[in-house]
Write a protein that binds this DNA or RNA. Sequence first.
RNA 1: UGGGGAUUGGUGUAACGGUAGCACGACUGACUCUGACUCAGUUAGUCUAGGUUCAAAUCCUAGAUCCCCAGCCA
Length: 599
Amino acid sequence: MAETSTNPGGSNPERPPHFIEQMIDADNAAGRWGMWPTTTTPRVHTRFPPEPNGYLHIGHAKSICLNFGLAKKYAGKFNLRFDDTNPAKEEQEYVDSIKRDVKWLGGEFDDGPNAGGVFFASDYFDQMYEFAKELILKGKAYVCELSAEEVAKRRGSPTVPATSPYRDRPIDESMRLFREMKLGRFPNGSKTLRAKIDLASPNFNLRDPVMYRILHEAHHNTGDKWCLYPMYDWAHGLEDSLEGITHSICTLEFENHRPLYDWFMNAINEGRTPDGSGPWGRIVHHSQQIEFAKLQLTYTVLSKRNLLRMVNEGLVRGWDDPRMPTISALRRRGFPASAIRDFADEVGCTKTESVIDIGRLENAVRHTLNKTAPRAMGVLRPLKVTIENWPEGKTDELDFVVNPEDASAGTRKVSFGREIYIEQDDFMENPPKKFFRLAPGQEVRLRWAYFITCTGVEKDAAGNVVGVRATYDPATRGGDAPLGPDGKPTKKVKGTIHWVGAHNAIEAEVRLFDRLFAAEAPGERTGKWEDDLNKHSLEVVRAKLDPALAAAKPGETYQFERLGYFTADPDGAAGSPVFCRTITLKDTWAKEAGREANG
RNA sequence: UGGGGAUUGGUGUAACGGUAGCACGACUGACUCUGACUCAGUUAGUCUAGGUUCAAAUCCUAGAUCCCCAGCCA
């Protein structure tokens, strides 16, 4: 399916620049990061640095769109970098899914003008180790032999300093122990390398943070080469430095870490010179950390930990269950990547923590799909209508407009006959005033077909409506009333309803999704998000569909007219599709009817 | 009881001492062979209290509320 977007790069030129763009504009004006080689284009190099310990979700999408969007806007580069410094939590499966999801969203990391490449923190372990030894030599790091429990005990309080008896150990002793740590001579947790900063700092991140811990554990990338793994704070700035990242964008909770980020880079650069003269060599690149507020959504839980629990506890059918907020689930459900990009751009980028109405995402999806999705008719809850004055066995092939928003999509044929199905909701035996659909004595238009008038109702023994009888008006073929002498239609009907022919409709499973959570802020009420799970988030129906839909391939999205957008699911087989409801159409009638019912 | 951030209509977001604007929602209406889409209109806001200024969302002072921080997680 062709994808269009009002802003394909995820960056709308009409929109005023957000605070990060303003910073970049200022940096560029000041020449802060220099130019790309042989150009006069100021260097802007961003990265998306996920830890491969889970599937990416819509919150990550915001970050990907932000970082890639900046690289694109400023004709710079964008890296995908796996922050794989903790072998205990990371897996190849997640690496694969993250690559797939970033690429699908439009983050070009290995192909295209803004592709900077794909990298792994673990690729830099050797260089990080060398930098660490340099800090030891400079007297800025030491090997500490306190256990984790002891460190916690000695952490102090905001006003009471921490302590460590190993802080003033001689440089050569730390160096020897650090080398032996690498050689695997010590068990897990027995020693750490700590930065010597300030045990009394009100910012706990500066109270001699751990740079390396001993972890005898195989790594998905480096195997069993290492038993010494760097901590995030030590590693991250080095990764950015080695890749020449200019703007290292992260979320708000890392604001307290920025002084440490800068301390590490300054410690490395102390004694280094621009031309490399002197004992420590050339100054290394020091990028700018910038924090922004991560995405939060109503009716949604967004944290890898909790999403992992939903998967493991069987609350959903997997990471790509279409009710999940993961990228792979949204893709399966039929949300177009361009709609997610538009959404990310619309919600903006600030340091204010805000909660976005999930309806904004849904609207972005409707907006995109309205222009791209071919239309079809399908009946979710069928009610049979018999056209009494239509000859038995006769069919009529009528023109159906494939997409009213896109004339180039053309028309195709739909087949009409004596028996058809309409939606149960489109018939009422005792309708309220403004019900424009089918009711006894009332006339409606069958979309692209004929006007019909309801002449009777068939009921079962219990009094339920099981069928409807009607007559059609032969003069309305194609759905238009004949014109009178004044050139105007001789009659008008208020309602148009969708239908499928009983003689040729296919039957298909259709999965109707509702929000996974029934509460706007899951867990707010009781402290447990489980208590707010929506028990009706999945409904499965057997629908009657236009036979043309039998050919739908997984991933293709159609608008079932008057109902919503539906995407063929991989669970379907050739000729017997399964559809997921991507999103409903807006339904002001349902709103009105609901209002009336509630008084 | 320490440190770091944030606060503008219902929601999100502009303004960078000089007319508080935009988007989404909601509500009206127009249009309509989708009660969709589209279009038009209406609605509604600067956390509080002082101060500086001809002029304050913006600067100053004091306060309020919310978020983050004491992992060998990221």
